[in-house]
Design a protein around this nucleic acid. Structure first.
Lengths: 337, 337
DNA sequence: CGCTATTGCTGAACCGGATAAGTACCGAGA
DNA sequence: TCTCGGTACTTATCCGGTTCAGCAATAGCG
């Protein structure tokens, strides 16, 4: 049982292939009566356009690519990517665009995937995530000439269209809130130092702490895993100038940090306040529930997808500054004892 | 700057399109000298085969589809899908297959996506997940005639190729272990009752408990969220015949249950033992770390992808029983006080 | 009534590769 | 010397759509 083609429809309707094509695409050139007849036949025999044939005529591939450059074991750690993907998806599927996904080992492999996808006509564009400092991918995709939206700050996006959130503002809100509660020794357990958003948050953290005249505001870098989050927390809490509040760069490290504090017989929030970057169900089920920096991640993904589709349509896509993360206070923050 | 085609190569090499095609595909019909010259030119101008043109000649689409039918808010909850996808990916990318992903709202939409993908020649096959009892998708994809591998028990897979794990054995191992520790009142906080694997685990749980002559072994169904896990735990722990051990169907509910127990001033594991289905970093960062049923989820996905590729290649793909989940004991299980 | 527009359709070329069929050439064997 | 067989190509066709040029029939208009 071969797939029906427009030739089959043409034969049944007693018209030419051209007429069928016009009818199916809502183009002028056929009478309403003929159009209706053709549509009825197409529907009856279950015709679907063959995208390969369409793509051959220079039409779009109707797919966009996303290559994730993270080891498999880190991918499951944060809900971030699944939420991001579901947001991207929502926007794409509304326009019948598909999402091509590939998990790669390093940036070189990632560029190889983009080049292949683009060269083979598989995708119309791509979304770049996890921007690094001086990211080699930026000039490389610029050279490839593929429409690309970057999730990250404009300063690192080169000529590509950036979609970002004001992490500086979020850091400021958090630190000012903790200071208002009475904290003077605040620490930050950050993610990978080579990621551009880590650098931005680090810098903002230092600036805000200095601006408020705080004493020592240490930053410890990790790989986002619970183990490293726990180790960093243990180190901070063992130091002579023990911080009274710690801001973690993700949820899993915050939970790990919480466990470490409790192990060390420190009460959260009396002895230690804990803030996590990015809310997740996890933050709400632990005791005490965590004060978090909330972002609407699916919306973030949707905005990126929307910008990318505009770019593909040839519309001049403008950079988009998304909403800054908002501080949602729960039981893990309080004035220091 | 147009994408180079074989016509460009032919012109530069001074041969016909046909000769170029033979050379690039390793077919006989060109001299080694000419082949080398053609390959050099192709490489130099950065030629890539246009998949659309290839697909038009009846070749494969070199992509497989995965439609996830879960609300966006549940997708991020469990690391399961990201791990599964990375496993599928590993197998696919080794064969240069792409993964088409779409998040859908319900089974009807999911079938629509499969029909469209298949009808448009976008994919060569698909993987079906989250099998329901009497799943309507099974007969429907059978009718579509697309190669499909099902992640789930053969009893629910119809004529489709199943890849599954022996959940019954895992349930038995868990319950027998808890009984060996001295537990007599064991409860199960299960997931969605309409999922086929939930039914299988429920049944196994009931059978094993009955076989060991245990008293009351209640099962509470939830939607996998932390909130419902917490509520279920609260209900179980408030009952007169309070269980001394609870087996949760995922990690987030187990953590929520742990918090509830601690809120109710019950010591884990002295007053309550907790077991989670599926390990994740989360299970290791909470205090006490959770005893879990571990599966190699990436491997599970890889096996499914491998079976699907075989099916696409026209090889008779056989059902695959993957390794049963193994019990990994940590601090959350102990003899009842 | 004759002229031009418009409508509604046909036929053919085209996109970029794969491939079957055809051809020119060369060397070997009868 | 003629034929046979293989090599190394070329030419033409096909896949399933889109699109353009062309054409007949009809409508509009002075």
């Amino acid at each position: 049982m071969r797939r029906p083609t427009i030739a089959d429809i043409a034969r049944q309707a007693g018209v030419s292939k051209g007429a069928v094509s016009y009818a199916l695409n809502g183009q002028p050139g056929v009478s309403e009566a003929t159009r209706a007849r053709i549509l009825a036949i197409a529907d009856e025999i279950g015709w679907r356009p063959n995208i390969a044939a369409r793509a051959l005529n220079g039409a779009r591939a109707h797919a966009v690519g996303l290559a994730l450059c993270r080891p498999a074991r880190f991918l499951g750690v944060e809900p971030f990517f699944m939420e991001l993907i579901s947001g991207i998806e929502a926007e794409l599927s509304a326009r019948s665009y598909a999402l091509l996904l590939q998990v790669v080992g390093d940036h070189e492999a990632e560029m190889g995937v983009y080049r292949r996808w683009w060269g083979e006509g598989r995708v119309d564009g791509a979304i770049l995530v996890d921007l690094h400092l001086d990211d080699p991918r930026v000039p490389q995709v610029e050279e490839v000439g593929m429409p690309v939206v970057v999730l990250g700050h404009p300063s690192a996006a080169g000529s590509l269209v950036p979609v970002w959130a004001d992490d500086r503002a979020a850091v400021r809100e958090t630190v000012e809130y903790l200071v208002a509660l009475g904290h003077r020794r605040i620490a930050r357990v950050a993610g990978l130092p080579r990621l551009s958003h880590t650098a931005i948050r680090d810098r903002a953290f230092g600036d805000v702490c200095a601006g408020l005249g705080l004493d020592a505001c240490p930053i410890v870098h990790t790989d986002y895993t619970g183990e490293e989050g726990a180790r960093a927390t243990r180190r901070l809490l063992s130091s002579p100038e023990r911080p009274t509040a710690i801001v973690f760069d993700n949820d899993i490290m915050a939970v790990a940090g919480l466990s470490v504090a409790q192990e060390m017989r420190l009460d959260v929030p009396a002895d230690l306040s804990v803030v996590a970057w990015d809310d997740s169900p996890l933050c709400q089920v632990v005791r005490p529930p965590l004060t978090v920096l909330t972002r609407d991640i699916p919306a973030y993904g949707a905005h990126a997808a929307q910008r990318l589709l505009a770019l593909i349509d040839g519309v001049e896509a403008t950079p988009l500054e998304d909403e800054a993360p908002r501080l949602t206070t729960r039981g893990s923050t309080a004035p220091p004892a």
